[in-house]
């Protein structure tokens, strides 16, 4: 068997193991509630949204429902991967793994792919089911291109959070710190980022209270490039009409590539220098 084949076998085995874990069973109802549940809710033809905005097509419904990915999907990724390294480190198994001939970068790929795919696969299935639900309930079917971009964007944000969690897990030497680090990062980008953006906008003299103010929208859009959730939404917005937040589709794609390469590189570098 070639080294690559062995690596992918290990990754799939890890993925299967994580997918069938107790924590996944606990998270599955949450994912169901947040992903197809939200899509079902936003597909209601009589929905009342702030500022009387109504989604005009399936893509817009799924854009609104993407908050389920931001809240539940990313949280699930963090919870799946937060002890990916720290658990083995505490038990001494990490030492045994690092003493094996398989190069550390390959072991890094196993960890990243194994954890990511264990959450990505259920989310992708739920996302596809959500799109069907939206089409069934509102009659607004998503174009295939839009559906593909929405699924790819969701897979990317899950990868980013998985790698953050693994990075945190490699730095922390016990479970508590690993989860605090990962959840802290999730909290920062998911909840505190709005506060951070608003604060920074106010300091720059932007009309913070006016959500229709183009200056604020552009400021927020550019600052969002520094957040994985922001980049995720920029990717989704590339498929929406009439959205201008100062970032082009190319800029969003470029940011997504950077958000993929940099954390993966940092994780691999960290793993290469890891002392058990």
């Amino acid at each position: 068997m070639t080294p690559s084949k062995r690596m992918w076998r290990l990754a799939f085995a890890l993925s299967k193991q994580r997918m069938l874990s107790t924590r996944m069973l606990i998270m599955l109802p949450i994912l169901l509630l947040f992903i197809p549940g939200m899509a079902w809710g936003f597909a209601d033809p009589n929905i009342q949204l702030p500022a009387e905005q109504l989604p005009k097509n399936g893509t817009e419904v799924m854009f609104l429902a993407s908050i389920g990915i931001v809240f539940a999907g990313t949280m699930a990724a963090v919870l799946i991967a937060h002890d990916g390294i720290s658990r083995d480190r505490v038990s001494g198994v990490l030492e045994v793994r690092l003493s094996q001939p398989m190069p550390r970068w390959r072991q890094g790929v196993v960890l990243m792919f194994g954890h990511w795919s264990s959450i990505a696969l259920p989310v992708a299935v739920l996302l596809a089911a959500s799109m069907m639900l939206v089409g069934y309930r509102s009659g607004m079917w998503m174009p295939f291109g839009d559906a593909l971009i929405y699924i790819v964007a969701a897979m990317l944000i899950l990868l980013w959070y998985t790698v953050f969690a693994l990075l945190a897990s490699s730095i922390a030497k016990e479970q508590g710190s690993a989860i605090a680090f990962s959840i802290g990062l999730w909290f920062l980008f998911t909840l505190l980022w709005v506060l951070f953006t608003t604060l920074l906008a106010a300091l720059n003299g932007v009309a913070v209270g006016d959500t229709q103010d183009q200056g604020y929208l552009v400021f927020e859009g550019r600052l969002d490039l520094l957040s994985p959730n922001g980049v995720y939404h920029h990717l989704l917005e590339t498929r929406l009409d009439g959205v201008d937040r100062g970032v082009s589709a190319l800029g969003a794609y470029f940011a997504a590539i950077l958000w993929t390469i940099v954390p993966v590189y940092l994780f691999q570098r960290r793993l290469n220098r890891l002392v058990p």
Binding site: V90, S91, V93, E95, V96, S99, Q100, P101
Partner: peptide, 13 residues
Amino acid sequence: RSLVGFMPEQVRW
């Protein structure tokens, strides 16, 4: 690493 087998002190499998 391919020539050495390592058994650490007390692995808690």
